[in-house]
Simulated scan of single mutants.
Amino acid sequence: MLPLDAEHTLRTVRAGDGAALARAYRVNREHLAPWEPRRSEGFFTEAWQEQNAKDCVADAAAGRSIRFVVVTADDEIVGRVNLNNIVRGAFLNADLGYWIDERRQGRGLGSLAVATVIAHARDALRLHRLQAATLLDNAASQTVLARNGFRRIGIAPRYLHIAGEWQDHVLFQRLLDDPVTAPSAHP
């Protein structure tokens, strides 16, 4: 577990997280809908989330991805940060994705969680680069990336199928040998 602030820590997804993940996604269903692919009703069930948690553990063991949850002191899941599509060899790259519970936004928690994962990607995974993409109008997510040293590298037309349609995205990258300055939470 990695501390983020006085109330939150970051840990990897583990088997047994299904019920807590299902709760977190149900609470944030409307909040996340504009930013994510359309989800089936099954996605919001404990059974689906538990199987996905087990898949996350297997993917981490195989080195394909590592998925984290932001948790409170009583282990309530209030966010996710994912490193997907980890590529070794000459690339040493991963795709970064994240979300924070709607009730906890605007306090710097997303920025802290992303900063912690950047340090982990650099120091523990020995990656060279992270990439991220946001919808064109997702200013909050773009702010999280900017605070963490990501640089805009272009626009990808119809990049991902989000909220039921192919949508353009702004692409960002973070070279991990650049200095990392951890953002602080808002008071």
Rank of each mutant, 00 (worst) to 15 (best):
M1T: 03
M1F: 03
L2E: 04
P3Y: 11
H8Q: 03
T9G: 05
T12F: 12
V13F: 10
R23T: 12
A24H: 15
A24M: 11
Y25R: 06
R29D: 04
E30C: 05
W35V: 00
P37T: 07
R38M: 06
S40I: 05
S40W: 13
F43I: 04
F44R: 02
W48E: 04
Q49N: 12
A53R: 08
C56F: 13
V57H: 12
A58K: 11
A60Y: 09
A60C: 03
A61P: 01
G63R: 02
R64P: 00
I66P: 00
A73R: 15
D75N: 14
E76W: 15
I77C: 08
R80G: 10
V81G: 01
L83Y: 07
I86N: 00
I86S: 00
G89R: 13
D95L: 06
L96Q: 06
L96W: 12
W99N: 01
W99E: 01
W99Y: 05
Q105T: 15
R107V: 08
R107C: 04
R107Y: 10
L109C: 06
A113W: 00
V114M: 02
T116P: 00
V117Q: 01
I118G: 02
A119L: 02
H120V: 00
D123C: 04
L125K: 00
L125W: 00
R126W: 06
R129E: 01
R129A: 02
L130V: 07
L130T: 08
Q131T: 13
D137M: 02
N138E: 03
A139Y: 06
A140R: 15
S141H: 09
Q142R: 14
N148L: 08
N148T: 07
F150L: 01
R151H: 12
I153Q: 14
Y159I: 03
A163M: 04
G164W: 14
G164F: 13
E165L: 11
E165R: 15
D168L: 09
Q173W: 13
H186G: 14
H186M: 11
P187F: 15
